[in-house]
């Protein structure tokens, strides 16, 4: 191959110049998941950019999220209480997921499967709370995708669309986790190895990652 010039000493250049595979030691499924997540990043960013655009262009007042999403606790309205709890739940699920990956690579398949199921339960809790949040918003605050009593119509539109799309990702993730967990449990990957848990984990952490951005841009702005 090419002469060992200065550039070839860089690991980056060397890897890209190799035959067979660019990402050494990265299984096909994992490479594919990373590339898919990159594509999904573009989807979510386009959603968030659209939200930014309609929010910045509207001449109507934008409802104040910290009031709209407040929850009564012990008689006082606490801003964003539910959202804070949902955030902590999702982070916790990311933690259990990371440990499932770890257990998988140690070939402890039962704990790995259990941790994945725990992750799925946290995910389901998240979706459940989201349903509660939507109901409250629709019933109590009168927010609809086409309008609301507080201000700009785009508030409800963006909110339902973005959290809805994220919620779909979480729900799909729960199903995916359960399927893989059951297969892990049954020992289907004993021969092939446990990359699959890491791949599932990538997806799950990504869903958490998206939530970080939604939390900052939708609820805190």
């Amino acid at each position: 191959m090419a002469e060992a010039t200065g550039l070839r000493n860089l690991q980056l250049v060397n890897d890209w110049a190799d035959d067979v595979a660019v990402f050494r030691a990265v299984p096909w499924g994992k490479a594919m998941m990373w590339i898919f997540l990159l594509s999904d990043t573009f989807i979510f960013t386009c959603f968030l950019t659209s939200y930014m655009t309609v929010r910045m262009t509207t001449a109507e007042p934008w409802p104040n999220p910290s009031e709209v999403f407040a929850l009564e606790a012990f008689g006082v309205p606490v801003p964003l209480l539910l959202i804070a709890i949902m955030t902590f739940i999702l982070i916790t699920s990311s933690g259990t997921m990371a440990m499932a990956v770890n257990m998988g690579y140690r070939r402890k398949r039962v704990p790995a499967a259990l941790l994945m199921l725990v992750t799925a339960v946290f995910g389901a809790m998240f979706v459940g709370m989201q349903m509660f949040e939507w109901t409250k918003l629709i019933v109590d605050e009168g927010v609809r995708p086409w309008g609301n009593p507080m201000g700009a119509a785009q508030f409800g539109a963006s909110f339902f669309m973005i959290t809805g799309f994220h919620g779909l990702h979480v729900s799909a993730g729960v199903v995916y986790l359960i399927i893989v967990a059951v297969r892990v449990w049954r020992g289907r990957y004993e021969e092939k190895g446990y990359d699959i848990i890491e791949i599932t984990g990538l997806y799950w952490h990504f869903v958490d990652l998206v939530w970080v951005f939604i939390f900052a841009f939708f609820y805190l702005w």
């Binding site: 660019v22 490479a31 990311s94």
Partner: peptide, 26 residues
């Protein structure tokens, strides 16, 4: 999340750049 949970920190530079550079378009 990306660096530790998704293990990006321990990946090789080739993968890190392949994933981190394209979002620049965004």
């Amino acid at each position: 999340i990306v660096a530790i949970f998704m293990h990006m920190r321990w990946e090789r530079v080739a993968l890190i750049t392949a994933i981190m550079v394209p979002p620049g378009a965004l």
